[in-house]
Design a protein around this nucleic acid. Sequence first.
DNA 1: CGTTTTTGACCTGCGC
DNA 2: GCGCAGGTCAAAAACG
Length: 193
Amino acid sequence: MENNFTSFFPISSSEAAAMSLNMGSSQGFTDYFQAKEENGFLGLIHQMEDHHPAVAGSYGNSSNSNGNLSSSQNKISENEEEKLLLGMKKKDTAKKIRKPRYAFQTRSQVDILDDGYRWRKYGQKAVKNNKFPRSYYRCTHQGCNVKKQVQRLTRDEGIVVTTYEGMHSHPIEKSNDNFEHILTQMQIYTTSF
DNA sequence: CGTTTTTGACCTGCGC
DNA sequence: GCGCAGGTCAAAAACG
């Protein structure tokens, strides 16, 4: 199968790349995948997910059921933090904030694309209908809560989907003068439309 | 020895 | 209410 090898912005910040692509699609995550499978759409996707009232597993604010007094008493989840900022009550789940997420598809041999930020892996999950696991990463910069998840498609295992959530509030930690090297690692996969 | 990864348990939302 | 799917925690292991 042939690839369209397109050039890429001379910045390794995928967040910037995502920002430049602000189309008003409001499909949810699963919707997006379904749509992609149907019409073969590939490329950068902006996911609003505003139809989904709640996100699964906002952790850290519930009392722990297995007895041990957990740190969750002092911990405030991201969502709570934002809700407090907006003057909402803790229990106001109906108005839970949905962070926009940006999906990013690349053709790559390797799963971990070096985007200049430092990430700490905090989970890995098997995903349904997919033989490859999905990996969850968090930006290690203090106070930066940007997350990303990386997943390879069963359908075409040459494609790696990276989904970013949140915005970095700090500069890139690594120099990106090895960007040429990054480009050799991956190919941006686009369809002509 | 500090940082990152691994991995099973746990949590939440959703559909039935 | 139960089971499933997705997301996260956290302790232990691996790593540099």
